[in-house]
Design a protein around this nucleic acid. Structure first.
Lengths: 377, 377
DNA sequence: ACCTGGCACTCCATCGCCGTGAGTGCCAAG
DNA sequence: CTTGGCACTCACGGCGATGGAGTGCCAGGT
């Protein structure tokens, strides 16, 4: 991930220091003791870390003097300046304008997240708060709504929580009800206590008995199956049924398959958009574009869909989000669910200038707890 | 609504014109022909309307000269100035600072909405667009989601749609499923094709047969009843049942009553928050406060809950919203549903500087169409 | 009794100017 | 490789002058 080779002293042009310090020479100079190189390297990373941390706190470009003072780097501002020049050369930091301090670039944040940031464990109080807040949930909907609000509150950012996906669960029960002549309501109940409903129009009214028959047939054929299998089973149902039910079953099967296959991961909860205004100045893009993007289900799915592995927190920074409107934001996401099988994803969207350690551990903790909560069913 | 008496020439202090024009005299001067007075009055209202319209379009304080030019008032800027002075005296308009144009006050908007704004009927194309967009909906959830997005798009404002309330509908069917030992999922299906689900913990696992029995009992007792009645019926159920089912029924009834009575109108959909940024400058309050308020279900209910009468569009301006964070916004809302029985409310939230005629007709049209759509079930 | 053109006045917004200070890059010495 | 010194750059904030839109008031006309 981090290009280690060819970095130290790379970048020709304005050589950094010393008259004998010709770029070409140093780049290929393997004479330098490895130890020295590493020490150098390490301090530079330390400088980068200090820059990121200070910038996250203060939201101001950070200069060499302040850095040397606030952090125990053991060197003078001048040395720090040299390191900063090197870091800038390599694209980890940049300055908004000449004679201003430095701020991290996307690449800088990336390095910080990958190698420099520790994980800040949550305090006991925080853990307890999460537990208290979530355990009052009365049903699946409530769990999701509470989680998303909790996450927004903990991180003070925009939170996104995907409803548990149906992929790995099984059909628990299918209910068929005629809600008006010629109109059936079909309710699909799954393992994960998730309920899907759809209205189906059929050619002509049917009597209560037929409805019961349909119910029986469907449950016998699909009950207990994994959803993907159930879709297949539903596809061949009409062919196997007696002629009396054929037309109705065709209509039902069509809708069921849609529900089972296509609309699996559609629903998503969002909270904390107000937090965007707090960091509005960080966004080079307009706040409007970001809000618009966040209203698109597709975009949200894209953001947290790829981070489905429970236990592993993924961070996407800037353009890594692959969403143009979010190119000045960062996304911290993870999956939740029991064991390896993910039920869904959750995460937060915020400015790149973000407290990554804190955010990451908050996301992890909430996902973990929600996973347990749903897994216990 | 408009204080007609004592206005003309009222407000002591700096008399408007003429040395003989003493305030006390004119105020009580009933000699003035009614006709003349009305003409005056009328032109003043016309001026107010012109101010509102121009300000809505241009978002700049509007001055006497521009007004006289753009609108066929038939009088000179000087006369308009006099009218403006009177309007300001009465609190309908105000100026941000001396030597700037005028902008409407809350009171001014209120008068405009009450008496000056016509209803702009939607174009045929708009009607068709609404229809096309909504008729693709596959279920209740989809209807609501589409409506709210449509409304946001049409009005270019924040849209709010309440899910159909359960109040007037009946219990269609109740489904009970054991999702894990000792845990029941209870699904309530209503007339309006709305589905509510809740998880119930019971003391100990029960077998499939008992579940079926519970289902039968519940449906026999509650099926077909109005929700309010059903709650009552559920309350006495445990007493009537045999001892075998007593404990389970008690648990189920408790949860059912909660669902039937307390959580009736909880869900609300929101869209178009991005539109807030467009008018961010209009809000004297911070955008943040508004976004925060809009994330509170309670607040949203308050906003559209009081406008439940289908066919009548209600407008709340500024402090009339009764929500402090929204004191610089306006809310246009109405109810939807078949006939007099409202299923829910919907509306939009935007800046007071809003195209009221257009917004009102859009809200009306969408509510109307959604009402038909759901009424046809 | 009302309308109108004229006039003096107010005050916001804009612009250019300049001093200040933080921060930098480079250099020569350690 | 580090450090103190030094000249340079440039955003930022305060200042005053200018322009112009808009107003209130008045005196004269219908």
């Amino acid at each position: 991930m981090i290009p280690r080779s060819g970095r130290h002293g790379s970048g020709g042009g304005q050589g950094r220091r010393g008259p004998a310090d010709l770029a070409g020479y140093v780049v290929s100079g393997p004479v330098v003791a490895e130890g020295v190189r590493d020490v150098l390297e390490e301090r530079r990373l330390e400088v980068l870390r200090a820059i990121v941390e200070d910038f996250v706190i203060g939201n101001e470009p950070v200069g060499s003097k302040a850095l040397a003072e606030r952090h125990a780097l053991g060197v003078s501002p001048a040395t720090v300046r040299n390191d900063m020049a090197a870091l800038e050369e390599d694209g980890y930091i940049t300055q908004p304008h000449t004679s201003a301090g430095r701020i991290p670039t996307d690449k800088g944040y990336r390095l910080f997240v990958d190698r420099l940031s520790g994980v800040r464990p949550l305090s006991r109080a925080e853990r307890r708060a999460i537990q208290n807040f979530l355990e009052g949930a009365v049903d699946l909907d409530d769990v999701v709504r509470r989680s998303v609000r909790l996450l927004a509150q903990l991180t003070r950012q925009v939170a996104v929580v995907q409803y548990p996906s149906l992929t790995t669960s099984r059909v628990r029960h299918i209910e068929v009800v005629q809600i008006s002549p010629g109109r059936l309501l079909i309710v699909l109940i799954t393992d994960a206590a998730r309920v899907e409903q759809r209205v189906v129009d059929i050619a002509e009214p049917i009597d209560e008995e037929t409805v019961a028959e349909l119910r029986t047939v469907l449950n016998r054929a699909l009950g207990g199956r994994r959803l993907a299998d159930a879709a297949e089973a539903a596809a061949i149902l009409p062919d196997e049924a007696g002629p009396g039910l054929r037309t109705q079953l065709t209509a039902l099967a069509t809708v069921l398959i849609e529900t089972l296959v296509e609309r699996q991961e559609e629903r998503i909860a969002l909270a904390g958009t107000a937090n965007l205004t707090r960091s509005a100045l960080d966004f080079s893009d307009s706040l409007r574009a970001i809000l618009e993007a966040l209203e698109e289900q597709v975009v949200l799915l894209k953001l947290i869909g790829w981070a489905r592995e429970p236990g592993t927190v993924t961070v996407r920074i800037g353009r890594e989000t692959d969403v143009d409107a979010l190119r000045s934001t960062a996304v911290v996401a993870t999956g939740y669910g029991r064991g390896a099988a993910a039920l869904g994803g959750m995460g937060v969207v915020g400015p790149m200038r973000m407290d990554y350690p804190g955010t990451m551990s908050a996301v992890w903790a909430v996902a973990n707890y929600v996973g347990e909560l749903l897994g216990a069913d």
